[in-house]
């Protein structure tokens, strides 16, 4: 994937405004988050509902199993937590970013 730089002059960009595929990956939408999804391994049944409903392709799946969040892109919408079918306390819960940051500092 071509690295996109924002400083190119008119001579250096592809004509017609063509764009390379998948380049949005370089854009950080993780900074939009006010809530952060957190995963609870013990409760997860790896049904992949969260993965299917994530609008931002931010649930990482490896070998058909939940394996983490892509926090560079996750916008913290909470759909993954909402769609988690686990009864009782869900395998994904949402916490405030500010709380998460505090916890990280400790």
């Amino acid at each position: 994937m071509a690295e996109v730089k924002k400083v190119k002059g008119w001579r250096d960009v592809a004509i017609g405004g063509l764009v390379e595929p998948g380049t949005s990956e370089q854009y950080n939408t993780g900074s939009w988050r006010t809530y952060r999804p957190v995963w609870h391994a013990d409760r997860c049944i790896h049904c992949l509902q969260c993965w299917a409903f994530c609008p931002d392709s931010s649930i990482v799946v490896k070998d058909e199993k939940f394996s983490g969040f892509d926090y560079y892109h996750c916008k913290g919408c909470g759909l993954c937590a909402k769609m988690c079918p686990v009864k009782g306390e869900k395998a994904i819960t949402m916490i405030l970013e500010t709380e998460a940051a505090k916890a990280e500092k400790k």
Binding site: P55, S57, K75
Partner: peptide, 11 residues
């Protein structure tokens, strides 16, 4: 569909 698109959170 790569992430990093600018749809509203939760769209």
């Amino acid at each position: 569909l790569a992430p990093g698109h600018r749809a509203c959170s939760g769209c």
